[in-house]
Nucleic acid binder design. Structure first.
Lengths: 182, 182
DNA sequence: TCATCCTATGCAACGAGTTGCATAGCAAGC
DNA sequence: GCTTGCTATGCAACTCGTTGCATAGGATGA
């Protein structure tokens, strides 16, 4: 388990509230680690009692107050300890691949419906790729002037881009197969 | 949730026991849906009481008896119903990407250790790719003579192969970044 | 013969993830 | 004035996933 660690990394990059973290998980971090706001609030509470993070109340005008979290030295130690542990094999839950194999046991009409659904899914990921590329242009306009942290964030984004490109190519293959008459 | 559906697909492709299913999840299906034997036995039990699958005891010589499961018509209906639902966005839990961004907050020695760990991880996935390619050669030697089901299984395997190739290329980029002096 | 490994099934406990709901302040538009 | 929507935090209940353990027959080899 490592939602804690993903939160520590995110807070080290920039301190923030539970709500802000949830936003970051929706956007950039969610590429490689998903979490809902409930999970995040629950884990943050535990991390605070364990002394991994500290919170300060921040008043905002035009908005409700928030509790901004910062990583403590103890939290830093926890993170570096985890960094030195072996990398866990990634957990995969890929709905679509199951459905593609399942399509063999569906009617011709059902397979046609799946073609539509895969096309929709493909369009979604084409959008996502466009957004990643726009984000890359916006956040990393000049690669030669990046700090270490920025270079590492950039290479992770490049991973997301490579994944989406691979996925789109594969979905094209899938569509070809699904459209073939049995 | 859809472990049920992955099991239905696997049993439709070939009836089998809980143990055999666990083996398949370790090997081919685990590429896109992971499950342990405990999960599988628990879900199989529920599926049996719900009438989605039926079991027969099969005596084997030289081995303990097993309970072989087959998909019932009701189970077929459940599967096709699910096939026509929208594809869920895939859940990602990618440890390594978190660590790469976390490396910005580690010492130079810690980053060096991460380089070793990423190299080990890369070697594992190189092995995996080799096994996928061997499996492709073994199971799909002649693409022109495949049935619908086999063609769909093949395109899913091609997805696994494409993923591993993408991953290896990305890991090379990651190693280059991690090796740069800060 | 004894230890070890593989097939085969399963329970129990705990931790993680999901879903639905609740509250509350403020902003914007009808 | 009212609804809608966004920021911000949180509880409760439930399901799913993980880990450790237990049992039991047969195969293999030291």
């Amino acid at each position: 388990m490592a939602l804690e660690h993903a939160i520590l990394v995110s807070l080290l990059e920039k301190p923030g509230s539970g709500y802000e973290l949830a936003r970051r998980f929706e956007r950039s971090i969610g590429r490689f680690w998903t979490a809902t706001h409930q999970q995040i609030y629950r884990v943050l509470k535990r991390m605070e009692t364990d002394g991994w993070v500290t919170a300060v109340d921040v008043g905002q005008d035009g908005r409700p107050d928030k509790r901004e979290f910062t990583v403590s030295p103890a939290g830093q130690d926890v993170l570096t300890g985890w960094l030195h542990e072996p990398v866990q094999p990634e957990a995969v839950r890929h709905d679509l691949a199951v459905k593609v194999r399942g399509a063999a046991f569906d009617s011709a009409a059902g397979r046609a419906a799946l073609v539509d659904e895969v096309s929709r899914y493909r369009a979604e990921h084409e959008d996502l790729l466009t957004r990643y590329l726009a984000g890359e242009k916006r956040d990393f306009p000049d690669i030669s002037t990046l700090s270490t942290g920025e270079r590492l964030q950039h290479v992770v984004l490049r991973g997301g881009i490579a994944y989406e490109r691979m996925l789109l190519d594969w979905l094209d293959e899938v569509l070809i197969e699904l459209r073939k008459e049995p």
